[in-house]
């Protein structure tokens, strides 16, 4: 891996573009300026992490990218996305299969074909024997995998990941990160991750967007070249990754 500062040009098309985006939250006690001026691009198939001091509006960026929130200024170009949250948010009264097809039901696209695709994904990611189990019977890692399948079954172009690993305990966490990373890369998905963990960002990303404190702007964009044969947990052991993580953590 070698870390180069700033973007390098690529022929790939953009999956997501933020252009001079600003966002203020309006509260009864006043205006809360979170994003001052945010511009960056995510190319197709790229894994991008957003890091920055806490409260700098990382989750706000994901909410805007997903369309849950309308930015108060600037332009956003986005595509069909899937959102993965910090918690798995599985519905306890639904089985694994019923949880997976939730989005298909909501979007009214539950057909024999999409249902079959849901079952294929469940089988592919090793949950076949838990198809009819309730979430309470599953381990934390398995639950997060069900949450991922629930997102993937909608065939998103971009995956928005809001600290989806932070609720897991350490041992499970590394394994689940490797797992999810492999799934994302093998499906050729574009991903945008928000994280507090600098090592996580350094070991997963093709590009890191580093923000300033709020009202935030882009402090720097770091492009990385990752070896596709290494898993994120292997990369964590490497000196360059740790050095980069340290520099991200320093103010």
């Amino acid at each position: 891996m070698n870390a180069k500062k700033n973007t390098k040009t690529s022929a790939k098309t953009n999956a997501l573009v933020f252009k001079n985006v600003s966002h203020n939250y309006y509260e009864s006690y006043g205006e809360d300026k979170v994003l001052a001026d945010i511009s960056f691009e995510v190319k197709e198939g790229e894994f991008v992490s957003i890091v920055g001091p806490s409260g700098c509006g990382k989750t706000t960026i994901l909410s805007i990218a997903s369309g849950l929130l309308k930015q108060t200024g600037g332009e956003v170009l986005t595509q069909e996305q899937g959102y993965m949250f910090q918690k798995d948010l599985l519905f306890p009264w639904r089985t694994v299969y019923q949880n997976v097809i939730l989005g298909l039901e909501i979007k009214k696209i539950l057909t024999p074909e999409t249902a079959k695709y849901a079952d294929q994904l469940i089988e592919k990611y090793g949950l076949k024997e838990f198809r009819n189990a309730k979430p309470a019977q599953l381990s934390g890692g398995m639950r997060q995998r069900v949450a991922l399948i629930r997102t993937l079954v909608l065939k998103p172009k971009i995956l928005l990941l809001d600290e989806p690993f932070s609720a897991l305990d350490w041992g499970t966490r590394l394994a689940v990160i490797d797992d999810v990373y492999r799934i994302i890369k093998s499906a050729g998905l574009t991903a945008m991750l928000v994280t507090h963990d600098a090592e996580e960002a350094a070991s997963l990303s093709d590009k890191i967007v580093r923000l300033t404190a709020r009202p935030s702007t882009v402090r720097e964009v770091i492009s990385l070249t990752q070896n596709p044969d290494e898993t994120p947990s292997m990369r964590r052991e490497k000196h360059e990754v740790q050095a980069l993580a340290r520099s991200l953590n320093s103010v």
């Binding site: 959102y83 949250f85 948010l89 519905f91 009264w93 939730l102 909501i106």
Partner: peptide
């Protein structure tokens, strides 16, 4: 609220949010 945000991220309308999550 987080479960409701999940449903909104799937473009659920108010009736769907109610029948799929809030009421159950």
């Amino acid at each position: 609220a987080e479960h409701i945000t999940l449903l909104k991220s799937m473009n659920a309308n108010k009736a769907q949010i109610f029948t799929k999550y809030v009421f159950p």
